[in-house]
Computed example of a mutant assay.
Amino acid sequence: MLDYRAEFDAEVAFDGGGELRARGFRLNIPHADVTDTEITALLVAMLAPQRVERAEVSGVRIFAEPHSPAGDPQAGRVRFVELSHVITAGMVTYPGLPAPEITPHLTRDASRGVYAPGTEFAIDRITMVGNTGTYLDSPFHRYADGADLAGLPLERLAGLPAVVVRAVGGERGVTAEMLAHVAVAGHAVLLHTGGDRHWGTPAYGVDAPYLTSDGAKLLADRGAALVGIDAVNIDDVSPAAAGERPVHSLLLAAGIPVVEHLTNLRELPPLGACFTAAPPRVAGFGTFPVRAFATVPADDLPGSAGDLSRCAG
């Protein structure tokens, strides 16, 4: 069994100005008979959300590499990327919501009188709202008849092929226009805004990045599996929004879980990562912290579109 890659030169002109020229660029491709048109489409998808006005490839060379057998210790090697904030006592996640309290239920000293000599345990208690740290919203968070945490299928939470949308340093709102050329069906769409750089400071909740309602409608209409953001909220929470939450309303009505307060999205490639953010199965509960993470092939080349078949989803 073989894996295939294309090596080529490329010239790209972006809508609104700017050009990119590359020599010896490489992309993973699905089969040996891929056409120049298909390679160009893969390149344009990798560059999203940048809007491409013109793209040309030349000098295409297709080469095959042996697919690592199942018994090979090198096969399936992945790099894990942590995407969650650490939860600590007293930390503020969303301004105005209570911070978590972490206290002992049974201390190690006290446990020595409960267990056999030489055996001790610590049993601790945490009191917190569901909106603590990096957390996932289920439809029940917004709608009384929506699926709660226990009702979410694992297919929506684990091993999802991820597409990372770069929206750092621009407008606050991630719009439908910025997402128009992104392939989102069945993907975890992760909005990399850079908002996490203010985590733990008063600036985190001020003029924060967000997804616009037209962007949310596009993602829902095109079948996104999950949507995440590295900011204080996926909706605009500024005073100008007057408490409206159109993005939560649209996505959760479509059964699309939302993950907020992600971090470290800069470490992920635009395509090729597999994303997981699974909360515990709590009935009658809408939101809970997750250990969000991604896996990236250890041999992933810079600029590679990745191999989405590696994801469980």
Results as ranks from 00 to 15, higher is better:
195 G>P: 07
279 P>A: 07
121 F>M: 07
270 P>A: 13
121 F>P: 00
264 N>L: 03
210 Y>S: 04
166 R>Y: 12
98 P>G: 13
56 E>Y: 08
285 F>R: 13
276 T>I: 06
274 C>Q: 00
42 L>E: 09
309 S>D: 14
29 I>F: 09
313 G>Q: 00
283 A>C: 05
51 R>V: 14
194 G>M: 09
212 T>V: 12
290 V>N: 00
268 L>A: 04
298 A>C: 10
69 P>S: 12
101 E>V: 15
73 P>T: 08
6 A>V: 13
19 E>D: 13
303 G>W: 01
268 L>E: 06
143 Y>G: 00
217 K>M: 08
229 I>F: 02
239 P>R: 08
184 V>G: 00
292 A>D: 01
291 R>S: 12
123 I>V: 15
243 G>E: 06
46 M>R: 12
170 G>A: 10
191 L>S: 04
189 V>I: 10
4 Y>I: 02
106 L>P: 00
227 V>A: 01
120 E>T: 01
132 T>G: 02
237 V>A: 09
268 L>F: 08
286 G>Y: 05
266 R>G: 15
204 Y>V: 02
95 P>Y: 03
62 I>G: 01
149 L>G: 01
22 A>K: 09
205 G>E: 07
154 L>D: 15
284 G>L: 10
212 T>K: 00
97 L>D: 14
304 S>A: 14
299 D>F: 07
58 S>H: 10
154 L>W: 04
1 M>K: 11
29 I>N: 05
139 P>A: 09
113 G>T: 10
300 D>Y: 12
63 F>V: 04
255 G>K: 06
18 G>Y: 11
127 T>M: 02
214 D>L: 04
128 M>T: 00
273 A>R: 00
35 T>C: 08
150 A>K: 04
155 E>D: 13
86 V>W: 01
300 D>I: 15
145 D>W: 09
216 A>K: 04
98 P>H: 10
289 P>S: 07
53 E>H: 13
222 R>M: 02
215 G>R: 01
106 L>V: 14
159 G>C: 05
199 W>E: 06
16 G>L: 09
112 R>E: 03
1 M>R: 13
259 V>C: 09
207 D>Q: 13
232 V>M: 04
228 G>R: 00
49 P>M: 11
25 F>Q: 06
289 P>M: 06
95 P>H: 05
8 F>M: 09
177 E>I: 03
250 L>T: 15
